[in-house]
Design a protein around this nucleic acid. Structure first.
Lengths: 177, 177
DNA sequence: GGATCTATCTATAAATC
DNA sequence: TGATTTATAGATAGATC
């Protein structure tokens, strides 16, 4: 995760995989240790370590077994309920990522349209825009005009709070389509 | 671990502890997930979660039990051997930290002495130094002189590789003590 | 193969909503 | 309380020895 964003997939190269394993195992054990200390909880981590032909256990056998005993005491049904299994874990992350993508796309689109508006103000015209862009711009201009009208109405009633900057930019825009 | 370096101790404040727990549990599960994917290994994490009145398990019950079965199959002696238990884990970290401190102190001392040397060259004198500083400076100057003499000898034999910069700085230093 | 370095990515404490 | 944001601490990929 540094020098390059790592692809979350099996590392083909043997030595690279082993190196990553050792580094991350250490990091993971540290995290478990910290969580346990900071929050005063019982936790254990067990990693089957092919490179060391040995299981790695934190904090120690006794501690792990204490936690495991708790685990086994739960009925099967309880274990499954609300459990963070691999699939739901991944689903959660995909959902989150999708949401962020959507949000970012919206932001990007707005910035693009703002840029286009400023280009218009600078007299660049719209010849370089394709149909899709023009439609998007249309939508933005439309939204702005609606907003302006709303504010004008509000202003007529003596309650205007509109920003003059917003109005001047939007009003200078030629209508598209 | 941000906005402030966190003290590795039990978090007294209840809500802060709970917030930290939730964040770090999530981060930990992600790490386990990544390690498992990147290195193609079996791993499980079990956290006794007082706030959720429920054990958190990754990747799922089946996966955890497979790893646990492996764990229980090992003879006690094997489990203990080479095991990273809490105490040895902490010892390792203390040892590492001590080593770094030592290294850093040495570096700092050298930089300090270099600074003092340059101050001398600028005619600042040594009046502001205490006895300890003077002794340290003495040591550094002594080392430099020994090095210079060695290089002079080597030079006499026609094999000098000495840097003129080093010599000029060191030679300008007044002797202390 | 392991230890170390360092540029960069990720996790997260605290603030804010 | 929980979600989001932001600034900073921590983890680590790739390089180097």
């Amino acid at each position: 995760m540094t020098r390059k964003k790592v692809k979350l997939a099996f590392i083909i190269n043997d030595s690279a995989r082993k190196a990553t394993f050792k580094k991350r195992k250490k990091g993971l054990m540290k995290k478990v240790s910290e969580l346990s200390t900071l929050c005063g909880i019982d936790a254990c981590a067990i990693i089957y370590s092919p490179y060391e032909n040995q299981l790695e256990v934190w904090p120690n056998t006794m501690g792990a077994q204490r936690v495991l005993a708790e685990f086994k005491r739960m009925p099967e049904m309880e274990q499954s309920k609300k459990m963070v299994n691999q699939e739901s874990f991944i689903r959660q992350r995909i959902a989150k990522a999708s949401e962020q993508l959507k949000k970012q796309s919206k932001e990007n689109k707005e910035k693009e349209m703002t840029e286009v508006m400023y280009q218009c103000l600078a007299g660049k015209g719209l010849q370089n825009l394709n149909l899709g862009d023009l439609n998007d711009l249309d939508w933005v201009v439309d939204q702005n005009l609606k907003e302006i009208n709303k504010r004008i109405e509000a202003f007529k009633k003596g309650a205007s709070t509109s920003s003059s900057a917003v109005v001047s930019v939007a009003a200078a825009l030629p209508l598209v389509e």
